[in-house]
Design a binder for these strands. Sequence first.
DNA 1: CTTGGCCTCCGTCAATTTAC
DNA 2: GTAAATTGACGGAGGCCAAG
Length: 311
Amino acid sequence: MSKCGRKKYIKTNLRQMTMETIESQQDGGVRDSVAESESAHMQTQTGQNSIPTLAQVATIAETDESAESEGVIDSHKRREILSRRPSYRKILNEISSDVPGVPKIEEEKSEEEGTPPNIATMAVPTSIYQTSTGQYIAIAQGGTIQISNPGSDGVQGLQALTMTNSGAPPPGATIVQYATQAADGTQQFFVPGSQVVVQDEETELAPSHMAAATGDMPTYQIRAPTTALPQGVVMAASPGSLHSPQQLAEEATRKRELRLMKNREAAKECRRRKKEYVKCLESRVAVLEVQNKKLIEELETLKDICSPKTD
DNA sequence: CTTGGCCTCCGTCAATTTAC
DNA sequence: GTAAATTGACGGAGGCCAAG
């Protein structure tokens, strides 16, 4: 077994042991990623672990046989224990409404996320996708495709493409499915009507049917695909035009890909919010500690005043 | 250099909450 | 009631560090 394979094997078994043990010992068990970030924070901030490390928990699992022998927890009870709390955004916004000093979690991505902040000034995108090379594609209503490079700042990194055949898009059609690298090294984004948006290496060859790109930004053409679709990419199709089971399967696959893509982005955003939430809580703790210290000092002062020592 | 432990990040699934 | 959004849980991948 390779190093990596053995590591994963051990890790998996350890995880199973630890999760069972923790869930039987604590109310609600360990929330994985919170434990990740918080245990790391505890270590760096205080040098102590209030949350046990995996190795420590493994020791607990070995020594505490009762926890293991208890075995199955009643699923209803378990569900009640594991019942979800409100979202980070909601919790934090409630806190912020009570405590003016606590910032609210923003609805939009923060600037550090790389999305150009003034992208909305170009047009209101209905969908934003990120390609495999990190570029952003925003689909605005009316068929305008905006492509931006994450490295560039603001509008400079944006290009607007207006599809000549946009018109009224077929109902149910998904606009951009995937980005890939063609055989000639150009980049392709798949769009409706069995066409692709191809990154052109020579900007002077930009055709007239697309908006002119500025500066040394790459240009894009809308044309028929030169290569077969990569594995896993399914072209958009109107539900009304589905006939065969194969097409239905393709539609299902397309929907799944879209759902996974959205969930991927949602998970990223959720983790970002969670980090922000933890940061806010930490800063609040710091503020409260200072306040507490001041109040204790004040109390001591008042005590001295009210009951002066008589020598 | 190899190995083991730990950590972070990510993608995915599924349960739950929220918005309409 | 339902679709969409949110988030806990899980497991894989890879990096870092210390010990052997």
